[in-house]
Amino acid sequence: MKPKFQSKQQVDINAPLEKVWEFNQDLLKIPLYHPRVDKVDLISGKQFREAGVAYQCHIAGGKHTCIEKDIEIVPMEKIMTVFPADTMGLSKLLPDYVVESSLAKIDPGTTRLEIAHYYSSSNWKVRLLNFYVKRKIAAEIQKMLNAMKNAIETEYHSANPN
């Protein structure tokens, strides 16, 4: 069971569902679109997503890292990711933080990607933090989605000029 829903961001990408899915499966592409990630280490030794695969993201600036782990994959539909550890203390504050990435075909050449965030906010520290960071997280994720849209569309349309 997922914790409490917190927010959702989305973007429509001008590329077929299969291409968006394929792009998102490659963990080494994360730095291409995530503005806060410089590098990804493949902790599980696997470059592509699957349930149980963990990877470490190095946050821009070099001071911090976070470990992400995909816990559920429904091909062409969704990816569920958790954050078991980080060097910033967020995993201790939000131990049940879950991100659900969902894909939907709008038409043959357009895919909607949504990212929803879930975590408990019963702790007074989390409620106070949530007041400040909820909008910040939403803005950062929207920026990431827009960068992913740009990367996928550039890659897809350069390979398929018509």
Rank of each mutant, 00 (worst) to 15 (best):
M1W: 08
K8W: 02
Q10A: 15
D12I: 15
I13N: 03
N14Y: 04
N14K: 09
L17S: 03
E18Q: 14
K19D: 12
K19S: 11
V20T: 14
W21E: 03
E22N: 09
N24D: 13
L28N: 12
L28Y: 08
I30H: 09
I30N: 05
P31H: 01
Y33Q: 01
H34W: 08
R36W: 07
V37E: 00
D38G: 00
D38W: 07
K39W: 13
V40D: 02
D41K: 09
I43E: 09
K46A: 08
E50V: 03
A51E: 07
G52H: 02
G62K: 06
K63T: 07
H64N: 15
T65Q: 09
T65S: 11
C66I: 12
I67L: 14
I67P: 06
E68K: 12
E68G: 15
E68F: 07
K69Y: 00
D70G: 09
D70I: 12
E72Q: 09
V74Y: 02
M76P: 02
E77C: 13
I79R: 00
I79K: 03
M80K: 12
M80H: 11
F83I: 06
P84Q: 11
P84G: 06
P84T: 10
A85Y: 09
D86R: 01
G89Q: 09
L90F: 14
S91K: 07
K92Y: 04
L94E: 06
L94V: 03
P95M: 11
D96Y: 04
Y97Q: 05
Y97P: 00
S102P: 03
S102C: 08
A104I: 13
K105F: 06
I106V: 13
P108H: 03
E114N: 06
A116N: 08
A116Q: 12
A116G: 06
Y118L: 06
W124T: 12
W124I: 13
K125N: 14
L128K: 14
L128M: 13
L128W: 07
L129C: 11
N130G: 10
Y132A: 14
K134T: 08
K134P: 00
R135Y: 03
E140A: 05
E140I: 08
E140V: 05
I141M: 08
I141P: 00
Q142V: 02
K143Q: 14
M144P: 04
M144V: 15
L145W: 01
N146A: 12
K149P: 11
N150H: 15
N150V: 08
A151I: 03
I152Y: 04
I152D: 04
I152P: 10
Y156T: 01
Y156G: 04
H157Y: 02
H157T: 10
S158L: 15
S158R: 09
S158F: 12
